[in-house]
Amino acid sequence: MSSLNNALVGAVVSTLLTLSVLLSAGHALAFDRVENRLVQQLRVDDIASVMNHGPRLIIMWSLDCPACFEELDTIAKLLAKQPNLAISLVSTDDDPTRHEEINEVYNDPAFSSIPRWVYAPNQAKQLQHAIDSTWQGELPRSYYVDEKGKRHGHSGLLNEKQLKMIISLIE
């Protein structure tokens, strides 16, 4: 009886592990489908192509940062008037369970014309360091990428006046 129980438990665990692997793969596929439409994952190897070409304004933000949403609201307002501004958004939330929530933010029609990125899973510190080893992770963080591809960083909320000034550099 004991061995039968063990065998049953073993079978259940084995099935569970198999299903877990499949489930995990299924999640990846599901996220890929969403990402293809809305948001791409930023990996360390992508940084040069995403962040080294200017003039461009890159806004780093997170779901945990109230000031970031103030800045995103202002950017949405500016994009509504000028949809083709050279602005990119990068979410620093590297927890894949939050990607759906990020997609909801990125679903704002105002952002439909600009590149939108999210940190690849479990890569927050690696990406932060690779983007800017002098940046300590505070948000919002903005980079003005000049015509030579040099990034100029700023920490803290940019108000509408400041954003318009930067936009005058990237138009």
């Binding site: 940062c65 000031a67 970031c68 505070e138 948000l139 803290g156 909320l157």
Partner: peptide
Amino acid sequence: WQVNGCPHQGPSIVKGGDDRVHMSWFNN
């Protein structure tokens, strides 16, 4: 540190065996 944003880094404290309060923090 002047920043209108989220440092995402809080401090740490502990009392000593006496009246001394020990504190540690991040700043930028």
